[in-house]
Design a binder for these strands. Structure first.
Lengths: 346, 346
DNA sequence: GCCCGCCGTCGAAGCGCTTCGACGAACCGG
DNA sequence: CCGGTTCGTCGAAGCGCTTCGACGGCGGGC
């Protein structure tokens, strides 16, 4: 009883199926098909089923442009990825992938913007209604994109926290707490002399929030616990040298906190060459660890969770009133064999 | 003389400027504005200038959805990025960034698809006219996406070369030639006993084109030159062990070809521990080298060029008849201090 | 038994752009 | 000086969808 005039003159100049084709095939009006798809009005069960059958009988896919024109929604999010030598690329990729995955779960796609285009890119996608919202990664303490975002009247979520969070929605790991947690763990074990191996110097110079906050958390906790503590920027090429310096200049050093993924392996290698294998010297890693590295005591960067949270928050902002807020995820320290009480000649 | 009725009743319910607003502001019809923007009909210089002035006086940006609906072009490319543990992430990122940059230069944006969605993702973006074409990275020799692509009637370009290239457009580095070039370089220097350190075993198992072809090129050239040659899959965690094995089992080994970016540093470290620093043992690297690694003789992976080529080819396919073809970029070997004639007790 | 309200569906009016055909004006050659 | 081009511009007709208001039909309250 369906199939009314399904192939009399289907206007199939193209191979594309339109909503009117589905409507005819199901014996309903186009608007009914639309309502079945959007759920914005109630549809009887029998009709719904008939329409859905027709949809996949014909292989119908709504035309994204038409939809966005009529509904003023594109179902696309923009993701601004960093593009710097000193950001750890695998982490950026983990974020990107988790954002795409989460966006798909909310029936959205992801448009990739690079830092390269800067504010112009944001203006472009916002002005042309290409996207319903933006997620920005790798936000700096004083980030040039923040004022642009504020002026844009386009929902946005930052991964990272700038200095002024007025009217902004941000998510991040609580890096200060993470830095502190590492110190507390070592101090609890009895360590009195520790060092923090950080990001490359350039990362601090451009005032990247997560790096600054981790360091600050480390320093505050060390002060609080009365632990001797120093900090050292590092990059993979300098890791061996830094290890040698630490061994030479800090004979009483018993604990190390490493907030620098790519330097971790060379650093451990170099320490091993000096006869300092964890947990002889205790090592706490902080960040996104490659699977190759042995299991260390560490605070993991929950990239997947952050990405998913960012998307969820963005969805809230897109349909619903705005709730600007800063969400900091609690760090979780994972204990393993690389830390132990210090071996000292008491 | 312009500005005719520019603010009488601009229908500015929204903040958005429409083409009719520009037309009114410039004193022309909407179609004229459209033709100025698209260049599809000739427009007098004075009119063009007037329209362009109005456009940026009002800050006009065409509505992407409306444009794609009317013109049947979305000005968006899809990029399918790999999502595997064993692909070297920084390389994937270099490709992605270069594709985005090149696409922008052609006035296109990039939609990010992950492997995760598989063929369904391709069907979705194709069916809903979200994109004008697709670029697929990390193509395997027998890739499940290839038949889908063929059936889709959506222009596509593969980065990588599958077994059957019928009706496909592909770009890649000529990895066979690259593998061979490394052998020839070492053989020319007088090496008679060399080893190839390859990708993780899983990469060969899933029949990744570039890995297979490099190895094949290596083996063919070694045979041709009558050089003793062995090959060894490797991953960063196994690098030290492999180094020890090579030193122990292959006393006459004088040259090494390394086609595995993340293993390179640990491998060199381990060799150094055995007293084999380049060019005592000659080392040729093949791939995308991190800036931290010392300057080695190498064949670089021209990710930026490949990305740009892929986009250029895709643009050709999008507007213009199809020219399926396989483009293999000639490898270029860069000479540095890490290779030298073998030191032998002749 | 009647009226009211609700539910399920339809028709039509756009959304903002491109593009096709048409049409004056200016310009050329005969 | 006139017919035929060419050039620059306009008006109108969609592109394929969503959404608003309208409208039958049916059930329930009185």
């Amino acid at each position: 009883m369906r199939n009314i005039s399904s192939n009399r003159f289907d206007n199939e100049r193209d191979g594309t199926v339109r909503i009117s084709d589905v409507a005819r095939h199901a014996g309903v009006s186009p608007s009914t098909v639309s309502y079945v798809l959007s759920g914005k009005r109630s549809i009887s069960d029998t009709t719904r089923r008939r329409v859905l059958d027709s949809i996949d009988a014909l292989g119908y896919r709504p035309h994204a442009g038409a939809r966005s024109l009529a509904s003023r929604r594109s179902n696309v999010l923009a993701l601004v990825v960093p593009l710097r030598e000193d950001v750890h690329v695998p982490v950026a990729m983990r974020f990107a992938v988790s954002v795409v995955t989460a966006a798909r779960a909310h029936d959205h796609d992801v448009l990739l913007l690079t830092q390269g285009e800067g504010p112009a890119g944001l203006h472009r996608v916002a002005g042309s209604a290409m996207v319903d919202g933006v997620i920005v990664m790798d936000v700096e303490t004083e980030d040039a994109r923040v004022p642009v975002l504020r002026s844009l009247d386009l929902p946005s979520v930052l991964i990272g926290v700038p200095a002024d969070t007025e009217a902004l929605t941000c998510v991040d790991l609580d890096f200060a707490a993470a830095g502190a947690a590492c110190v507390h763990h070592l101090a609890d074990l009895g360590h009195r002399d520790i060092a923090f191996v950080g990001q490359p110097a350039s990362v601090y110079e451009r005032r990247t929030g997560f790096a600054e906050r981790t360091l600050a958390g480390f320093e505050a906790a060390a002060r609080e616990r009365g632990v001797r503590a120093t900090s050292h920027p590092c990059d993979p090429a300098a890791a061996r040298t830094l290890a040698a310096e630490l061994v030479r200049d800090r004979p009483d050093l018993t604990g190390l906190i490493v907030h620098n993924e790519p330097s971790l392996a060379p650093l451990l290698d170099a320490l091993a060459d000096h006869g300092r294998t964890p947990p002889e010297t205790s090592v706490v890693a902080l960040g996104s660890l490659p699977p190759g590295v042995a299991e260390l005591t560490r605070v993991e960067l929950p990239a997947e969770e952050l990405g998913a949270r960012a998307v969820a928050l963005l969805m809230d902002r897109i349909d619903g009133p705005e709730h600007p807020e800063v969400t900091l995820l609690e760090p979780r320290i994972i204990l393993a064999e690389s830390t132990a009480p210090p071996v000292r000649p008491d």
